[in-house]
Design a protein around this nucleic acid. Structure first.
Lengths: 300, 300
DNA sequence: AGAATAGTGTCTTTTAGACACTATAGT
DNA sequence: ACTATAGTGTCTAAAAGACACTATTCT
């Protein structure tokens, strides 16, 4: 190719003289919201255990935010994609490989890391809790699964002459035994004929490191949105599961109860019955199902 | 705070001695897929004009990809978010401000820019075509609206013993008068009990710069997805519009025809009738509508 | 027997799809 | 009068919601 630019350079000459140091550059982290669903202790021999949505947090062993709880993550290297970096961190942190991993959003607020300019390419992972064994990585002196609750506290909606403004205030609660982290997250949307904007802000970090409360809120909203029109929830299930278990997973993610008959109708194409049954409780055994790959609908 | 890490440093001491040069860093670009909808020439005094979905491209005036068509964009600066950088570029490129702007996805494939390590935080903007006047920026010797068509060519679906594999092949066509860019984009999804992955790849760039065919494909898929459950399409409309025009916008984005009665039922809560009418054609005048802010549903 | 869960049948309500019909401007 | 579009009414089909009923296991 012999094209020359306004300085008379060919592409090869241009690339040879190009100095990447001309622009200031951010560090790029890949942080991860790793979801799993775990059983509570069963109350009696009769009752089935309930499900809880959990997120993996690590207790930071280094500055900044020393001893605070944070999402697992690490820096992206030049020869890998952000997704590969996330998968690498996931493997190091939990030992699992090949699970569902999706890029969420890239957080770029200046000052979000006190060290230096760091943007975070946030990911969401869904893992079957029977597969994971948590282990602490380099940066962490401790890692633990926190039970998650994310509830809308207040919704404020103002109709303007030529647009609207909405504020949603959420409480994000993460609990592991005695340790309870309670963060407040706000989503603001405004829209007029001549302006539009959306902000997602942490008003109270609840002792979570960085802007990680915001990232977790973003992840749970994405998960709630996707569960109703894709089959991502099946990535949280073991190989064999009952339909009641699957329904419990949907319920704990959406934080609302579903009707049994309607639920079974809706997820019917996503699962396939086996000829095996549970044998645990003091009640009628439940048929075990597995994923139906023909009905899959993982599209993004 | 007097917490000390394993080297005995407080947070202040740690930050004072921290060297950001320890890690290699990427440049971060904010690239933008700017959508608008324009009218074709009307065939006769009777016929209404048709709508076309358009994307703004700039012809590169510098290496790399000199003289190739590319998405507008620029580098993110340390004191701004990626969204602010995109808004800044949008203002410079089109003169518009305060339009709908949404972060799409961050592209991080190593080698996607021949100069150096550059990740692209891609955004999507929706602008009302009556507001924009295109002007070339620094990097561009020319900017133009390209008509867009994005069609599924082939769908390949393989059911494995323990999972599935799907390949979707799309043709992305961008045309501005004689200039036609025809790119091929592939989306691959595989999923098994022990592995999961998704790739989005350009198999033929059709003379588009960088991985921009992929970014455009990602944007059109997001737009198609969002149009059915939010009111983002209204950001493409002028202050007053007819329901037929709005339906045409939906049709050109989804690339399929809709039934008039059903469409009107569905978008009824999003619009508000005015007492004004069109006066253009040789047929019954059409009532003009405006956006109904009460019915808004811009949530992400 | 009784408790707890599994699983199905069916009625109602809502939503989407299909299509025909009436209405009204300009030439 | 004719053409092209505007706008509505209504029937049908499909999906979602609600709820009751039967089935089956272990203690």
């Amino acid at each position: 190719m012999e094209l020359r630019d306004k300085n008379g350079l060919t592409e090869q000459e241009f690339l040879a003289q190009y100095h990447p140091e001309d622009y200031e550059r951010p560090s790029m982290a890949a942080d991860m919201v790793i979801f799993t669903v775990m059983n509570t202790e069963r109350e009696s021999f009769r009752k089935l255990p309930e499900k809880e949505l959990c997120v993996l947090l690590i207790r930071r062993g280094a500055h900044p935010y020393l001893r605070r709880w944070a999402l697992p993550g690490g820096f992206v290297r030049p020869n890998e994609t952000a997704g590969q970096a996330a998968a690498r961190e996931l493997r190091e942190e939990t030992g699992v490989e090949g699970v569902y991993l999706e890029q969420l959003y890239t957080f770029t607020q200046p000052g979000r890391d006190p060290r230096t300019w760091v943007v975070s390419c946030a990911h969401m992972a869904l893992v079957d809790s029977t597969l994971v064994r948590v282990r602490a990585g380099d940066d962490a002196d401790h890692a633990a699964w926190f039970r998650l609750s994310y509830r809308l506290l207040q919704e404020e909606s103002t109709v303007l002459a030529d647009g609207f403004r909405k504020v949603f205030r959420y409480c994000l609660e993460l609990a592991d035994g005695d340790v309870v982290l309670r963060a407040k997250v706000e989503r603001r949307i405004y829209s007029t004929r001549t302006d539009w904007g959306e902000e997602f802000a942490v008003t109270d970090s609840g002792d979570l490191a960085f802007d990680h409360a915001q990232i977790i809120a973003c992840a749970i909203e994405r998960l709630r949105g996707k569960i109703s029109y894709t089959d991502v929830a099946l990535h949280l299930m073991p190989a064999l599961f009952t339909l009641t278990e699957l329904q419990q997973v949907y319920e704990v993610i959406l934080d609302k109860e579903l009707l049994k008959a309607a639920f079974r109708r809706k997820i019917a194409p996503l699962v396939k019955e086996t000829d095996r049954f549970t044998e645990d409780g003091a009640h009628r055994p439940s048929r075990l199902y597995r994923r139906n790959w023909e009905g899959s609908n993982d599209a993004v």
